[in-house]
Amino acid sequence: MISFKKKNFLYKVYTWLPVLILYISVLNEFDFNYIDIEYFSFNFPFILVFFFALKEYSRFDFFLVFIAGLINDTVIGLPLGISSFSYILVCIFASYLRNITIRPHLIKDWFYFLFVISLINSINYTVLFFFFSFELDIMFYVINNFFTFLFYIPVTIFFDNYLKAIND
């Protein structure tokens, strides 16, 4: 396991890593679209936001999440505020789950995450389709939802180890 001397510059960068990854992922739209698998895509920021909101990670400021949403809208070309709204909703649902959970369980969190992203993607689709007259393929949303759900477990395992490294 990697160990850091606390108050070291590298340690500070390491503690800010989730926020950095979030910003890189929204600026770069990090979803492996270029590998050209038909319909394949997943929403990495959703996993990241849900996981760190659930873990109540101190460096993961909601305002920074909100700004990341605005950047995501600008990069993708969606109406400004849509992604911020989605990310903050993810934070709210994660906070609610944390408040009602005494003994966290990965599988329960996983299916709760599926419910949350399905609900938020539905809201997104409805708002974009009905209020902004965007032509969208619902299949993209369904498959994006599915892959985001699948990728939750490996990402969770990776960041659990990350958090353990910080606590050490």
Binding site: E56, S58, R59, D61, F62, F63, F66, G69, L70, P79, L80, G81, I82, S84, F85, I88, L89, C91, I92, F93, S95, Y96, N99
Partner: peptide
């Protein structure tokens, strides 16, 4: 979930969600 400002959080989630709607 809505109102509690957690450790080092500058804004509550309710404020941010209202702000998102205003921006939209």
């Amino acid at each position: 979930a809505f109102l509690k400002k957690e450790t080092q959080q500058k804004f509550s989630l309710l404020t941010l969600i209202i702000l998102s709607i205003v921006i939209i």
